[in-house]
């Protein structure tokens, strides 16, 4: 427990947080990586996932790819990208996007598929075109699951962004690895606690959004997409 109190002391020290390269800046970096990676992944995966869910085409490939990525070790992906793209920001970002895409893709197509076929059928029978069926029926009704996919992606990316420091990027992994290399246990423990807190906070935000959505009448019950991180 000595380490813990030392870690708390370290965390409570104003010096730990302020200034460039300190914890405040690192946390911002960490959130920045997460946001950029998830955003890029969403731009790729949301349209693709919605299209797969709507048309039913390409589903097998999507299922296969998300299964394969689940088995892919994140550290391996990260180091491979770093060796290929060089030390810096690009490599981790590529790895993070690759990790985030399958979750978002799966959420998008599972969300669309979760909508009762009879409802979709009725919407078509009323004279909605494909685009209207997608945006007025399938997307709003499948939204909780689509957001579940984003939630999972954010979770995975936040966790893996910690490893990004191993290949030379910033983020909260920086003080963690620094503490690891210099046997500064309070520092690495403190940094770990901050990462855990950040991850739980982000996840809690999604929890709140999904809870709010579950009060919206008529929406599918919030399904938390469960997959490997």
């Amino acid at each position: 427990m000595n380490h813990l109190s030392a870690a708390v002391d370290w965390l409570l020290d104003a010096q730990t947080w302020t200034g460039p390269g300190q914890l405040g800046a690192r946390a911002t970096e960490h959130l920045g990586y997460t946001a950029v990676a998830v955003l890029i992944a969403a731009v790729i995966a949301l349209p693709a996932g919605l299209a797969i869910g709507h048309t039913g085409r390409g589903r097998a490939a999507a299922v296969l790819s998300s299964g394969a990525v689940r088995a892919l070790p994140t550290l391996g992906l990260l180091t491979l990208a770093a060796l290929a793209a060089g030390v810096g920001l690009v490599a981790p970002l590529i790895a993070l996007v690759v990790l985030a895409v399958p979750s978002i893709l799966a959420g998008a197509y599972a969300g669309v598929e979760s909508v009762d076929r009879a409802t979709v059928d009725a919407a078509r029978a009323q004279g909605m075109n494909a685009w209207q069926v997608l945006w007025r029926v399938e997307v709003p009704l499948g939204l909780p699951i689509v957001i579940g996919g984003l939630r999972l992606a954010v979770l995975q990316v936040t966790a893996t962004a910690t490893l990004a420091a191993y290949v030379g990027a910033g983020g909260l992994g920086r003080p963690l690895f620094l503490g690891l290399r210099t046997y500064d246990y309070p520092m690495m423990l403190g940094a770990s606690l901050v990462v855990i807190l950040l991850a739980i906070l982000l996840d809690a935000c999604f929890e709140v959004v999904q809870r709010l959505l579950s009060y919206a009448p008529g929406l599918a019950r919030t399904g938390r997409l469960r997959e490997a991180r």
């Binding site: 910690t162 490893l163 940094a191």
Partner: peptide, 9 residues
């Protein structure tokens, strides 16, 4: 929601 590396630590 807890990331793996921090939990190891």
């Amino acid at each position: 929601a807890v990331p793996s590396l921090p939990l190891f630590i």
